[in-house]
Amino acid sequence: MAKLGAVVEKVRSKNAGPFWLTIDIFCGSAESFNRVDRQLSTGAVAKTLQQDEGSFKRFSMPELNVLKFSVPRPHVQGSRLDRDMHGAQWALLIEEIDLAD
């Protein structure tokens, strides 16, 4: 098993407006991209963030070696239950997902 963070260059999560969260996985190479695109299921990301798989949008962008996910924010940005105004910490959870060898 390998942590996703060890296989890719960088994972970034960020608000896309107050109502959406977007996660960009910069794989850094075609080899890494192909592996992550094949092994990282939308379901695994949804489970990590405890959201419905059906609410995710997934974009595979081989020309950039980027895999991108977008999902409505679990809590609207800045509302009482939101813990991270800019949504940047979710990326760290994605980096900790295990990929099969």
Binding site: N15, A16, W20, T22, K57, F59, M61, L64, S70
Partner: peptide, 11 residues
Amino acid sequence: SAHMLYENSDP
């Protein structure tokens, strides 16, 4: 081209 990703839910 990567900037289309930034803070955008659809690139």
